[in-house]
Design a protein around this nucleic acid. Structure first.
Lengths: 358, 358
DNA sequence: TTTAGCACTCGAAAAGAGGGAGTGCTAAAC
DNA sequence: GTTTAGCACTCCCTCTTTTCGAGTGCTAAA
């Protein structure tokens, strides 16, 4: 059954007032907010209906109403006014993005920080991890006769280099040879394939070269598994303590520990969707049952996606958070996905379409 | 004035009991703990003296006694029994150290994590930062005609590599030339010196080469300033909420925010000292006035030192924390300072001397 | 269908009432 | 002189009671 227009307007007022005050909303307050057209008694009748229908809840008989998860859902889907960012907000985001942003890891963790301070809630950031990462290029550079720098580039254009030491000193011309061998026979291979090849060449190489080679392959498999494993960063968990619903140390501790330690089970948006909102019990993780999560994904090039999410109380300011988050994700996508150039401090239009939800 | 032996024994009991229970300690409890030789009334007389002398405090008349900062100080300096680690504890530390530990950053942040879980308190870890870092070696590797990998090694044997793109395509043989130029004229130089040299060669190079070169120098100055800036990682801040003295959300928030945001002002040990203990008001930072900090430094080779510290309530278990922390710092020093080899899973002696204090 | 009126509910905060752990002091014992 | 038993006293904690008021639900009139 569709709600009447007036019921929706009342629901909207309740949600927005509760978002602001974190206190149950009284019928009188609603009547005022709605501009005096109706009396509080009328509102009370409507409120009773809304409770009946499951959109609102009443902490106890003589208290005002608070939105239920179902109420928030309706609000987010239909009632919420999709906000545009103020120039100030957009400028803040751009400023935050102008910082140094070359290294993938630092991009991702910074994204979390930015979003957290943008939203005023704790946030997390995930790099989706490349599916079947392989190496595109090797380079070995001698440092001494028993150590060398190994540089590798993954097919996600991620470069990793490290000094390797070996127990058996090697010849001077051994490294170019090895580099060549690596680039012809070990590129575009999975870890197992690389290990097979390593075994198959073991006979044909002098011991020092073979030792060096196996060190390289060991590092390679580490680099690849690292590239495949998504990284998760959490930030702003201290903000949890500023939410009235988490003034209780035990609850705060539970949520905080969950965010820091059980990073894997933080929500991600559905494939293809740019944004997802999960309200209270819609979260699968027990620890998030009393919170809402807004998560957006962005393009970081090379077919990879990054992810930033905000964790807040169910009464979080959805309009503001979604607006900022989607603008942020969009800016990041522009920065990384389309052109690979560093951030052009775009001073263009500050209004944007907002993200979606199921 | 020196305390009598009995006063010291009483003080020791008070401190240790309070560390354990976080409750004011009663004269009766003390009498029991001391083995029945004296009555509680005698203890009460002694307690009154100790309060007078400033070693103990009384939250209110008719409450037990708690140690004052001065009391803790005496305890730490004279009374505390320097603990040896149990085999289990030493084994736990070794196990934690066996993990992957090649990259400096990951060593440092892991050190913080390990220490935090070792102590049960939040912890921080700092890399001291090299004083006047310079670059020891450059290498440029072509990827396409407008992008190349730049590898550089600092004099702290830290390798950094990144893909650079340039707007002007360059010749094939340009990169080896540039590499050569860099290695002959730009190594062992400060940032300003490098920039001077850059200007002085600007005339003699074709535009594409010069553009590429300036990108390299720009990256170099970033790498160097990064190497000079100490990194600070904080972990385990969620443990703050488990301390009874920080059940109050506001206080917990204050401390947590301080640890996460004002990293610079976290205490460091005096030059040369392996360890430092700061009790309550001995901390300069206001936010740490009600906490104690135990901080140890360790050798990470190349004349650099790392730092790990633990932040806990003033009644923290100093004996346990200092024992673990100093064992940990010593193990790390062995691992990195003396030999540069990766962790040999040492199954040797599990007892060690403990660290020092002013 | 809306509204005014009013009794009723319930929680939060304030006030009150023991209870008890622990002290400080005094006077006796060692 | 030091130690100890004895005892009154203090002050916090917990539990209960009271009060207060915001807010509701219901009824009857507009």
């Amino acid at each position: 059954m569709e709600l009447t227009d007036r019921k929706k307007r009342i629901l909207k007022v309740v949600v927005e007032d509760y978002i602001e005050t974190a206190e149950p909303v009284a019928s009188k307050t609603i009547a005022q907010q709605m501009g005096g057209g109706v009396s509080s008694a009328t509102i009370r009748n409507e409120l009773a209906d809304l409770v009946e229908l499951g959109y609102l809840e009443q902490p106890h008989t003589s208290a005002g109403r608070i939105p239920s998860p179902k109420g928030y859902r309706l609000y987010v889907n239909e009632l919420m006014e999709r906000r545009s960012l103020s120039e100030q907000e957009a400028e803040d985001i751009n400023a935050a993005l102008r910082g140094k942003m070359e290294e993938l890891d630092s991009v991702i963790s910074r994204a979390g920080q930015v979003v957290s301070s943008l939203a005023g809630y704790p946030a997390y950031a995930v790099s989706s991890g490349k599916k079947h990462a392989t190496l595109r290029r090797f380079e070995l550079l001698g440092v001494s006769d028993a150590s060398f720098i190994c540089v590798m580039m993954t097919d996600a254009s991620h470069v990793k280099s490290q000094i390797l030491k070996t127990e058996l000193p090697f010849d001077e011309d051994c490294l170019p040879q090895l580099t060549n061998l690596l680039n012809t026979h070990f590129t575009s291979r999975t870890i197992t394939e690389m290990n097979e090849r390593l075994r198959s060449v073991s006979e044909q190489l002098p011991a020092p070269s073979f030792l060096a080679l196996s060190k390289v392959i060991a590092l390679a498999s580490e680099v690849l598994s690292e590239a495949e494993r998504p990284d998760v960063f959490t930030t702003g968990t201290n903000r949890i303590l500023k939410m009235p619903e988490f003034r209780d140390a035990d609850r705060a501790h539970e949520l905080m520990t969950f965010m820091v330690e059980s990073k894997e089970s933080l929500p991600v948006p559905d494939d293809g969707a740019p944004m997802k909102i999960l309200i209270g019990p819609e979260n699968v993780s027990e620890a998030l049952r009393d919170t809402s999560v807004v998560v957006a994904s962005y393009d970081i090039g090379d077919n990879m996606r990054g992810l930033v999410g905000v964790v807040g109380p169910t009464r979080m300011d959805y309009a503001a958070v979604t607006a900022r988050l989607s603008y942020f994700a969009e800016s990041l996508s522009n920065m990384f996905g389309k052109n690979q150039l560093p951030p052009a401090p775009a001073d263009e239009s500050t209004t944007r379409k907002q993200g979606e939800d199921p």
